[in-house]
Design a protein around this nucleic acid. Structure first.
Length: 896
RNA sequence: GCCCGCGUGGUGGAAUGGUAGACACAGGAGACUUAAAAUCUCUAGGCCUUAGUGCCGUGCCGGUUCGAAUCCGGCCGCGGGCACCA
């Protein structure tokens, strides 16, 4: 009998699928279509075990849907524009294009041996001119629909390198290369008008039944609809044209607690004051230092500057409030100006205390806490209860004295509207999407700047506007900007000499419509109508939770924009019917701190040896327990230690030499920590099916999974066992003994469990059931026909996860055709019925015994049996039960 | 700082509000073998001068319930996101 040999089995079946065109998708109106998509990878150079997990999950769904009679579309491509390619070019010469395409080649080569049921004929990379040319066409259509516009926005500016920095290139407020303090600088940039759709994008979340609730919550908070009051303070001693300052507040009920007005450093009034007040200008310049991220702004020390201007309180013109410029106020949200109510906002309170401003408590807890409550005026923290909580107003002006924040806000808005102070408005936190990037390796924005005509879209027949190849990355900045000829062109409108836009698009644009392009990847328009109508929507989308907000929100916006521009059917407004977010694959980090040179080499006057951190590769160490915690030693240091005791001795010696390796468990895989597990070595050692089986087993798919060598080995052992069991059955080595009705039942139970498991993304639980079923099959003394049926069913149930092994077993057992095409087994409902059930008996919620009863026994009879049970009799001690709860088929609880 | 998650044996984890620890890994004991590997069988949350029909136990504290890993409130820890990483 032959051994399980993945190295020979796997290429054989991959070839068979390719020859049969098993996974090539073509439109077929007779079958229900199913579009399964995993978030496409960035071509970093090598596939990562996290990719293997992500694509295996998608593949399980794809193969399962194929077996259940669907016409499946399961494509793959690459999200290929972006900074790493430029960084590589800067670091080691070369060209981003060469680097990217060579990485793509490598990754495709690494993915193919994994046997994913992908339609490779549809593959593309977003850096293919064929793709980004269509993206440019889309952009032009969006421009003419009014979905794109230009405005000023701030960027991270490195004043030394004279270049724009990405947020990740700003480290502790300084440029990553120059180390210079980063400033916020305004540039004219392109924007998508996503904010026009804020309400629609928010409301439509309700219809996404098959999306995780957490993703919908995150998106809803991100869009951030708020109902508030917009009103104006009239100013005293302000420059011309600034006789009023518009503010927006979500808490108009706290107006009587106002103690100052805050302006954003980017507010028009701030800019006006800057002109002739050097002291103020210097303070504002200080506030503009640091990065642009919300996190940086929030964490920055709260700075203010008193403008000297005063405003009149809308309810009492004699009451004047100071106007401060404050660095924590965002120009993009509301009106860029707020009123501060220190008593009910911790940030305002910190600010008020710093600048010695008034604190006026507006409301206090409604009841109970009189004795313990310290008002903010008396040094307590800001009082910020939930809006649903009822509070008592000391300085209310509308509504009841005791009311919820919500009711008070509504009453305040009504009051203000009636008295002409302001009006209730709905605002969104969501800002327009800035898509301009001052970088080379991205999709060129297809517009031309003409002295006569202004900003003009490129003609579609001139697309794609291709990136020039002759560029260099030896100096910072955008190579397109300094290219001698690429910018020169004729105005598409008047024909006069003009200049191209040198900004390229945010890579989120590339990934916001690739799912639509996959339906017709070679079409000469962005999409093909018939294909888009047939294949959209994506039935199941799978990807990382890190994309919960931006990528998914942008894609939802793009789908709507593509409907408006005629590139998608109206039914595709929500492009992803179901979403699944999977966890990361983590791995322990092996860390030691070693002297950078031997002590004996130390000479007087020389630098003494320093401890430095060394990260070891997983394959270079042996891990074991020492003193109750996991530690490791280098394989080269084992010195013939044959058992645990000797390994521990070596570890102790290493500790003395400061060479002992600490194990830091479950860390995100990272190249710099050397804890990246290369899937290719796993495949080389165990085969693709083992890798696939392992990444699905043990951990729930939405949670992170720790890669362990022992886990991979266990997976491999199990597949070997399945192969051996199946071969024995195929070879007729099974003794013809008695019938075993239990095995037939187990088989149908397994069909039921695994089918439900796959449908619900419970892959780890499904695999646990497959272990159980395998054990049942192995132990069963059933006759060969029943065993053969069970083994064939096992192969089918495993086939989405371990497709190569399953094909091999299917063939051994005389299955017809490819298992990939065999119809998914259906459980016989009659086989799933159990005759008896074991009911645990609880007394006061604690388990005290159990009884076996027929499944259909009436409640009354169960009660009689329970009351007769010795544990219950003893607990009752002759008395009557207070309560008797019988949950049919589940449990019995006696309350005494 | 703000938003969203997660936390169960030595380890990964299972459990429609209903027997906590399924299924595995590592460990222990045994069988087979000249031996090893492979394979198979059994064992396995913690506690105890009472070994039981016992007590404790799902990050911590409290609540709802006949019954809570699961629901609610507060706290601690870890992770994801925060609009130019993808």
């Amino acid at each position: 009998m032959s051994r399980y040999d993945p190295a020979s089995i796997e290429p054989k079946w991959q070839q068979a699928w390719e020859q049969a065109g098993t996974f090539v998708a073509t439109r077929d109106q007779d079958k229900p279509k199913y579009y399964v998509l995993e978030m496409f990878p960035y071509p970093s150079g090598r596939i990562h075990i996290g990719h293997v997990r992500n694509y295996t999950m998608g593949d399980v769904i794809a193969r399962y849907k194929l077996a259940t009679g669907h016409n499946v579309l399961h494509p793959m491509g690459f999200d290929a524009f972006g900074m790493p390619a430029e960084n590589a070019a800067m670091a080691s010469g070369g060209h981003p294009k060469d680097w990217t395409y060579s990485n793509i080649d490598t990754m495709v080569e690494q993915m193919k041996p994994l046997g994913f049921g992908l339609d490779w004929t549809r593959m593309f990379a977003t850096c293919d001119p064929e793709y980004y040319g269509q993206q440019q066409a889309l952009f032009i259509d969006m421009l003419s629909e009014g979905l794109v516009y230009r405005k000023n926005a701030v960027v991270n500016w490195d004043p030394v390198d004279m270049t724009v920095l990405a947020n990740e290139q700003v480290i502790d407020g300084c440029g990553w290369r120059s180390g210079a303090a980063v400033e916020r600088k305004e540039l004219t940039q392109w924007f998508f008008k996503i904010s026009d759709m804020s309400g629609e994008l928010l409301d439509a979340l309700d219809g996404l039944d098959e999306w995780p609730a957490k993703v919908k919550t995150m998106q809803a908070n991100w869009i951030g609809r708020s109902r508030g009051l917009q009103f104006a303070f009239s100013t005293v001693d302000a420059p011309e044209d600034f006789d009023r300052i518009d503010v927006y507040t979500t808490r108009p009920d706290t107006l009587m607690g106002a103690s100052f007005v805050g302006l954003s450093p980017d507010h028009p009034l701030t800019r006006a004051l800057e002109q002739d007040n050097p002291e103020l200008a210097a303070a504002v310049a200080e506030m503009r230092k640091g990065g642009t991220t919300e996190e940086a702004l929030e964490k920055a020390e709260k700075l203010g500057f008193d403008t000297g201007i005063r405003v009149r309180h809308p309810f009492d013109t004699a009451w004047e409030l100071p106007v401060y410029i404050a660095n924590f106020i965002l120009m993009d949200y509301g009106t860029g100006a707020i009123f501060g109510c220190p008593a009910h906002d911790q940030r305002d309170l910190d600010f008020a205390r710093k600048y010695d401003l008034e604190v006026r408590t507006v409301f206090v807890p409604a009841m109970g806490e009189e004795g313990t409550f310290i008002t903010p005026e008396d040094g307590g923290p800001a009082y910020v209860p939930a809006k649903q909580e009822t509070v008592r107003y000391l300085r209310g002006f509308a509504g009841q004295e005791a009311q919820t924040g919500e009711a008070a806000v509504d009453a305040a808005v009504d009051f203000c509207e009636e008295n002409g102070v302001g009006q209730g408005v709905t605002k969104y936190r969501l800002r327009d999407w800035g898509l301009s990037r001052q970088r080379y390796w991205g999709c060129p924005i297809p517009v031309v700047h003409c002295d006569q005509c202004g900003v003009v879209p490129e003609k579609k027949e001139n697309l794609p506007i291709e990136l020039p190849d002759d560029v260099s990355f030896d100096i910072p900045g955008n190579p397109l900007d300094r290219h001698p000829t690429w910018r020169d062109c004729d105005c598409p409108s008047c024909g006069a000499p003009a200049k191209r836009e040198t900004d390229t698009m945010d890579t989120f644009v590339d990934s916001s419509w690739y799912f639509a392009r996959f339906t017709a990847p070679r079409a000469v328009t962005p999409t093909d109508k018939a294909d888009a109508e047939y294949w959209m929507n994506v039935d199941q989308y799978i990807g990382g939770i890190e994309h919960a907000i931006l990528h998914l929100l942008y894609s939802r916006f793009f789908a709507r924009a593509m409907i408006k521009t005629g590139h998608l059917p109206a039914s595709a407004a929500e492009p992803f019917n179901a979403l699944f977010t999977q966890g990361m694959v983590t791995h322990a980090i092996y860390l030691s701190e070693e002297l950078d040179k031997p002590i004996e080499e130390t000479k007087p006057g020389r630098t003494p040896p320093m401890l430095r951190k060394i990260y070891h590769y997983p394959e270079d160490v042996i891990e074991f327990n020492y003193d109750g915690r996991p530690v490791a030693i280098r394989r080269v240091d084992v010195k013939g230690a044959a058992n645990l005791e000797e390994l521990r001795e070596v570890y102790e010696l290493d500790q003395a030499d400061a060479r002992a390796i600490e194990v830091i468990p479950s860390a995100k895989m990272s190249k710099s920590k050397n804890n990246v597990v290369d899937p290719m070595s796993i495949i080389a050692t165990y085969g693709a099916d083992t890798a696939r089986w392992f990444v699905l087993s043990d951990s729930p798919p939405e949670r992170d999974v720790e890669w362990t060598a022992s886990g991979a080995e266990a997976a491999s052992k199990h597949l070997t066992r399945v192969y051996r069991i199946a071969s024995e059955i195929a070879a007729g080595d099974v003794p013809e003994t008695r019938e075993d009705p239990a095995l037939l039942k187990e088989t149908h139970k397994a069909i039921q469990d695994i089918t439900l498991g796959v449908e619900a993304f419970g892959f780890n639980a499904a695999i646990a059931k497959l272990y159980g079923f395998t054990n049942a099959l192995s132990k069963s003394r059933a006759g060969s026909e029943t065993k053969r049926f069970a083994a064939k069913t096992l192969a089918q149930l495993m086939s989405p996860m371990t497709p190569h092994l399953s094909e091999e077993i299917w063939q051994l057992l005389g299955g017809e055709g490819l298992i990939a095409n065999a119809p998914w087994p259906v459980a016989d409902a009659a086989m799933l019925v159990e005759d008896t059930v074991t009911l645990p008996i609880q007394v006061n919620g604690k388990r005290r015994g159990e009884i076996d009863v027929p499944t259909d026994m009436p409640k009354e009879e169960v009660e009689k049996l329970v009351l007769a049970h010795e544990a219950v009799v003893r607990a009752l001690d002759g008395g009557q039960p207070k309560k008797l709860i019988v949950v049919p088929g589940r449990i019995v609880n006696v309350v005494v």
